[in-house]
Design a protein around this nucleic acid. Structure first.
Length: 423
RNA sequence: GGAGAGAUGGCUGAGUGGUCGAAAGCGCCACCCUGGAAAGGUGGUAUAGGGGCAACUCUAUCGAGGGUUCGAAUCCCUCUCUCUCCGCCA
């Protein structure tokens, strides 16, 4: 959520900045609502002040045993006008709030301007893709004989669900364990979080109200819950409605959870294999930081995610996303893209964003600054990494001519000392 | 699932219709005292929003929402959450 003061004081600048990310801000509606809000709010508060002072006088008069009927006559009829104004005011404020909740974040000045992923900028490439002296297979052809069971996944749940068996399932677990252990060493507190959350949590991190179609939801009794699309939701919402002590910052949290996404609107994309699933595991990193340090924290988190790829010796590149390709709540985002030899390209495996105060305003997540004033924290989140896609990358990059897959050295301890998986 | 109790500021906790945004204590901050500290003393110490250049001022908030009333932390209704006991259960 953007700061409404900024919108009031410098609307044109906001419009321009949002345009850079292909967002067209309906300023007429906003300005009309604001004008009416101001008029109605001023009037309402004047009436409330009148009512309060009169009521106080009635109380004083009655305490003294005097007759209060004159004052009571004065406020008679005030109630109806006040009621009407209060109702209208709350309608206006709800409409304004709803409008604000649909506005994306303003990009940081350092973000490249562009309309699509074509304009993302490569920051660096790390590692050299391996050369193969045999015909390489994609991860499905490598993985199916080893335990990737797409057919049974489909039988159980439909398209975009996968069952894993045996050594592949174990490799998947090893990856998640390794990532979680590593991020814990980077200073993140390990968390186990709910996989279902209420609407308030999703409003806090920005998935609702705008992106409900991307979520899986469930009815339980009279309440509605949603499956988390990422543990960014649960980890970041730990500070919802909180005023944290400045000494407690930064708060660094990590969790390994499944993520559930409906993938509405991606029909036909990545239909084969494990790249795009309705359910996938991810190790998430979240930082709650002082505003002055959020960009340093962003760089640090990119390093934490890169650490996993380096340890796994997977070639990757770091991309700075352009204005048109960034997510709703991000002020600046770096993507990590891992090399997939069968696709002969880099594919996203991690996304790390600084949301600045965008989520904090929705969450009411604040801290007391040095002057003792409350101020919004900055929030960051990033994958460290997406486990399923990392499995894909390992299967493809570590495949051997005989159909076996070498286990990356750092994972061997998690695999009971095995060095490869075979049929 | 059944029965009961509760939800007040950073914390503990008083407050059953009227000068209550809320006693008191703890904590925290500043100052005094001290060589320095402790103890003691004095004062300050919620959040959000509106108006104003500002000093300031107004409004809202006692779990949430509705109602009664000139006036609600207090009375009524609905909901949520927490705790205790019983049952069931991974």
């Amino acid at each position: 959520m953007l700061d409404i003061q900024t919108l009031r004081n410098d609307l044109d600048a906001v419009v321009t900045q949002l345009k850079s990310r292909q967002f067209d801000f309906d300023t007429a509606t906003f300005s009309a609502l604001e004008a009416e809000r101001k008029a109605v709010q001023t009037r309402t508060q004047a009436l409330q002040a009148k009512r309060n002072s009169s009521s106080k006088q009635i109380g004083i008069a009655k305490a003294k045993g005097e007759d209060a009927s004159a004052i009571m006559q004065e406020v008679a009829g005030l109630g109806e006008q006040l009621k009407a104004d209060e109702i209208r005011l709350s309608e206006i404020q709800a409409a304004l709030q709803n409008l604000l909740l649909h506005l994306p974040n303003i990009p940081h000045p350092s973000v490249p301007v562009g309309v699509s992923e074509q304009e993302n900028i490569e920051v660096r490439q790390v590692g050299v893709p391996r050369s193969f002296d045999f015909d390489i297979k994609d991860h499905t052809d490598v993985g199916v004989p080893l335990g990737l069971d797409f057919d049974t996944g489909t039988q159980l749940s439909g398209a975009r669900f996968t069952l894993m068996r045996g050594q592949v399932a174990k490799l998947h677990r090893a990856l998640a364990q390794f990532m979680l252990d590593t991020q814990e060493k980077h200073g993140y507190e390990e968390c186990y979080t709910p996989y279902m959350v209420n609407a308030d949590a999703l409003i806090g991190t920005g998935q609702l109200p705008k992106f409900e179609a991307d979520l899986f939801s469930l009815q339980h009794n009279d309440s509605q819950l949603y499956l988390i699309p990422t543990s960014e939701v649960t980890l970041t919402n730990t500070v919802r409605d909180a005023i944290v002590a400045v000494d407690d910052l930064p708060i660094k949290l990590t969790a390994h959870t499944p993520c559930f996404r409906s993938e509405a609107g991606s029909y036909g994309r990545d239909t084969k294999g494990m790249i795009r699933q309705h359910q996938f595991d991810k190790v998430e990193m979240v930082q709650i930081v002082h505003p002055e340090t959020s960009y340093a924290a962003l760089d640090e988190m990119v390093g934490h995610a890169e650490h996993i790829l380096k340890a796994l010796e997977l070639p990757y590149r770091v991309m700075s996303l352009c204005t048109g390709d960034m997510g709703f709540g991000a002020a600046k985002t770096y993507d990590l893209e891992v090399w997939l030899p069968a696709q002969n390209t880099y594919r996203e495996i991690s996304s790390i964003s600084n949301c600045e105060a965008f989520q904090a305003r929705r969450l009411k997540a604040r801290f007391k600054n040095a002057e003792g004033k409350t101020e919004f924290v900055h929030t960051l989140n990033g994958s460290g990494l997406a486990v399923g896609r990392t499995l894909v990358a390992v299967l493809e990059n570590y495949q051997n001519a005989d159909g076996s897959v070498t286990i990356p050295a750092v994972l061997q301890a998690y695999m009971g000392g095995r060095t490869s998986i075979t049929r």
